[in-house]
Simulated assay, not measured.
Amino acid sequence: MKIIIAAGTGFLGQNLEKYFTEKGHEVYILTRNPKRKNEVYWDAKTLGEWKNLLKDADVVINLAGKSVDCRYTEKNKQEIYSSRIQSTKILQQAFDECTHKPKVWLNASSATIYIHSETHLNTEENGITGDDFSMNICKSWEKEFFKVTTENVRKAALRTSIVLGNNGGAFPKLKMITKFGLGGKQGRGNQNVSWIHVDDFCRAVEFIMNHENISGEINITAPNPISNEELMKKLKRQMKVPFGLNAPVWQLEIASLFLNTERNYY
């Protein structure tokens, strides 16, 4: 297949590219800083030569969006919002102008669209979406994505939980604080962590691509969440770190400042 990954130079994009390339597929990356033969320039805002790649492609995977691993200043919040909406909008325009359209369009979303729950299981059918900055970003993102129905193009929004892998995302930071003896529970420790291994994320994307009956909002996560306390216990055990100091909320606030992120990123 000919697969196009928009904004594919980050953690998820790199793993998807490797996964599909090793299976013999032709993978192209849309990026602001093209450096390799299979990378093509785009700014995620305007049409350009990149739109020609869509012709006769099989799949488009859009991962564009400023990372939420940052402080939520007004400037960053605006960029988090606009980077997701604009990239989705310009891809729709490219689809509209394409004569031989890709059959499948997968757009990133996030499982943070759901309310925090320690008892209710948020499925696609009965999940409860909330009303805060992160949730409203996801709702606006999906609304833009599904606003236009394109004939013969199957769309799926990937409501992905925390993706764990050694080469990016949240996991290296969790390993770092565990290594330095800070791998105890964070806050109360009973908050559920929905997660998926990066290899299973790639397999899930492939599964959605290959099954024509799958469309709409799709949760991509392991079937069983784990408590924060149990997650950190398992991590300490695997890293052979004998102890880990617990971190009350006030310490997490301080740590997040030093890490230049938000406490709820974890």
Rank of each mutant, 00 (worst) to 15 (best):
K139Q: 01
T9G: 10
K89R: 12
T73W: 08
T46G: 15
I128C: 02
K77I: 08
C98H: 03
L91Q: 05
R71M: 13
G169D: 01
L245Q: 13
W250V: 11
I254C: 05
Q191F: 11
L235W: 04
K66A: 13
P248M: 11
F146N: 01
F11T: 11
V27D: 04
V148M: 09
F145S: 05
N228A: 06
V153N: 12
Q186Y: 07
C138N: 03
T31Y: 02
S161L: 00
V193C: 10
L53S: 08
G216T: 04
K139G: 00
K175D: 03
L158T: 12
E144S: 09
I4Y: 13
D58W: 09
I137T: 14
L158M: 08
T9R: 15
L12I: 11
K89I: 05
G165E: 00
T221F: 05
Q14I: 04
D200W: 15
I113W: 00
T31Q: 02
A94S: 04
I254K: 09
G244K: 05
I254G: 03
H120Y: 15
K236I: 09
T261V: 14
A7V: 02
A57S: 12
M176I: 12
R159S: 00
A222F: 03
L257V: 14
K143C: 06
A170K: 04
N210E: 11
L47C: 03
A157V: 02
V27A: 12
H197F: 15
N76K: 14
K233W: 13
T123G: 03
T112M: 14
N126S: 12
Y114S: 02
V148N: 06
A94V: 06
R263A: 15
V40R: 08
K23A: 14
P248N: 10
F145E: 03
S256V: 08
Q238H: 14
L182A: 09
G65W: 03
K51G: 01
E79Y: 08
G216V: 04
I254M: 12
P223A: 01
F207K: 03
E206W: 03
P248L: 06
K101S: 07
Q191P: 11
E206F: 06
K173E: 12
I5Q: 03
S256R: 13
V205I: 15
R203M: 13
G48N: 06
N219G: 00
I4P: 06
S110T: 10
S140N: 11
I177D: 12
E217W: 05
